Simulated assay, not measured.
Amino acid sequence: MSHARTIWEEGREPGRQVVALGVALALTAAAVELALAERISWGFDILFVLLCLALALLVTPRDFFTVGVLPPLLMLLVFTVVAVARRGALGRPDDSLVQAVIAGLAGHSLALCLGYGLCLGCLAVRRSYVS
Rank of each mutant, 00 (worst) to 15 (best):
residue 1 M to V: 04
residue 1 M to E: 00
residue 2 S to Y: 15
residue 4 A to L: 13
residue 5 R to C: 04
residue 5 R to V: 13
residue 9 E to R: 15
residue 11 G to L: 09
residue 12 R to M: 00
residue 13 E to C: 15
residue 14 P to D: 10
residue 14 P to E: 02
residue 16 R to I: 14
residue 16 R to H: 15
residue 17 Q to H: 09
residue 17 Q to P: 05
residue 18 V to G: 02
residue 18 V to N: 01
residue 18 V to C: 03
residue 18 V to W: 08
residue 18 V to S: 06
residue 19 V to W: 01
residue 19 V to C: 07
residue 19 V to Y: 03
residue 20 A to K: 11
residue 22 G to M: 05
residue 22 G to P: 10
residue 22 G to S: 09
residue 22 G to H: 04
residue 23 V to D: 05
residue 23 V to A: 01
residue 24 A to V: 12
residue 24 A to P: 12
residue 25 L to R: 00
residue 28 T to N: 08
residue 28 T to K: 02
residue 29 A to F: 14
residue 29 A to L: 13
residue 31 A to W: 04
residue 31 A to I: 07
residue 32 V to N: 07
residue 33 E to L: 09
residue 33 E to D: 14
residue 33 E to R: 11
residue 34 L to T: 13
residue 37 A to W: 12
residue 37 A to L: 10
residue 38 E to G: 11
residue 38 E to S: 13
residue 39 R to E: 15
residue 41 S to H: 14
residue 43 G to V: 10
residue 44 F to H: 03
residue 45 D to P: 10
residue 46 I to H: 03
residue 47 L to D: 07
residue 50 L to R: 00
residue 51 L to W: 13
residue 52 C to H: 03
residue 53 L to A: 12
residue 53 L to W: 15
residue 54 A to S: 14
residue 55 L to Y: 06
residue 55 L to K: 05
residue 56 A to F: 13
residue 56 A to M: 02
residue 56 A to D: 09
residue 57 L to E: 11
residue 58 L to Y: 14
residue 58 L to S: 15
residue 59 V to Q: 03
residue 62 R to V: 04
residue 62 R to I: 07
residue 63 D to S: 09
residue 63 D to I: 00
residue 63 D to R: 08
residue 64 F to D: 03
residue 65 F to L: 13
residue 65 F to C: 07
residue 65 F to D: 07
residue 66 T to V: 11
residue 66 T to Y: 03
residue 67 V to Y: 12
residue 67 V to K: 07
residue 68 G to H: 01
residue 69 V to W: 03
residue 69 V to K: 04
residue 70 L to S: 02
residue 70 L to N: 07
residue 72 P to Y: 01
residue 72 P to K: 04
residue 73 L to K: 04
residue 74 L to A: 04
residue 75 M to I: 14
residue 75 M to E: 14
residue 77 L to C: 07
residue 78 V to A: 12
residue 79 F to G: 08
residue 79 F to M: 01
residue 80 T to S: 15
residue 80 T to M: 14
residue 81 V to K: 03
residue 81 V to Y: 04
residue 81 V to N: 03
residue 86 R to W: 08
residue 87 R to I: 09
residue 87 R to H: 02
residue 91 G to Y: 03
residue 92 R to Q: 13
residue 93 P to N: 04
residue 93 P to V: 04
residue 94 D to V: 13
residue 97 L to S: 00
residue 101 V to L: 08
residue 101 V to W: 07
residue 103 A to K: 11
residue 104 G to T: 03
residue 104 G to V: 00
residue 106 A to C: 00
residue 108 H to F: 05
residue 111 A to W: 09
residue 113 C to Y: 09
residue 114 L to Q: 06
residue 115 G to K: 02
residue 115 G to I: 02
residue 117 G to D: 05
residue 117 G to Y: 06
residue 117 G to L: 04
residue 118 L to R: 11
residue 118 L to T: 07
residue 119 C to V: 01
residue 120 L to F: 08
residue 121 G to Y: 10
residue 121 G to E: 04
residue 122 C to H: 00
residue 122 C to E: 02
residue 124 A to Q: 05
residue 125 V to F: 11
residue 126 R to W: 00
residue 128 S to W: 10
residue 128 S to E: 12
residue 130 V to T: 14
residue 131 S to C: 05
